[in-house]
Design a protein around this nucleic acid. Sequence first.
DNA 1: TCTGTCTTGACGTTATTTGGCAAATATAAA
DNA 2: TTTATATTTGCCAAATAACGTCAAGACAGA
Lengths: 103, 103
Amino acid sequence: MSSIFGDKLKSLREEQQIPQRQLAAVLEIDTATYCKIEKGDRRAKREQVLQLAASLQTDSKELLRLWSADKVYEIIAAEDEATQILNVVAESIVSYKRKKAKL
Amino acid sequence: MSSIFGDKLKSLREEQQIPQRQLAAVLEIDTATYCKIEKGDRRAKREQVLQLAASLQTDSKELLRLWSADKVYEIIAAEDEATQILNVVAESIVSYKRKKAKL
DNA sequence: TCTGTCTTGACGTTATTTGGCAAATATAAA
DNA sequence: TTTATATTTGCCAAATAACGTCAAGACAGA
């Protein structure tokens, strides 16, 4: 398995030569669990993403973006019209903003 | 609550003047449960989407697209960079296709 | 080999989701 | 208003999915 978020996490961690054990300690979870998060077969909690961004001294918004992207990707990867699904969503976001603006 | 998928379902059903009871019967679920699906506070199963498309004589791919879009929307609606998240996903889809093509 | 890091699978626990029932609320016609 | 039908809501138990830990294994460097 693999994930956008997990890959980013791993590369940041390796750049800074931090062992998984240390980040696991920050999140107060087992190293096995942390490992799974990095591998993409467990999902970090939103709060944990923020903690990780702080520990790795990286932009939390960027990390959150990748984290969300993984969740989205998982949903549509199986569908054959993945890109079109994104278009539907993008449109609905736009129309929602339009509604909101009218208020 | 409301959903893209549920709204579509409702409009198709009303166009054809079919009671919820009848579609619920097709899916072999309670009318209350069907109602929730239409309202968007229960999610239909993939299989059910196909059954509904058949019963409502509409394109199943289109319906599946809306169904998936709802799931995606739910994930990113809360994030303030929703559109950018979609971009990240779109990119990763493209790069995945590229990899696949290389094989 | 020993040591530390990383990875994986199985397992029990917890959280979320599902569908049904019953009751409440529309909606429409008489 | 009364009656009949359709839709909606709240709550519950069962099913499902996700979580985190433990134990065991893989792999590298000393």
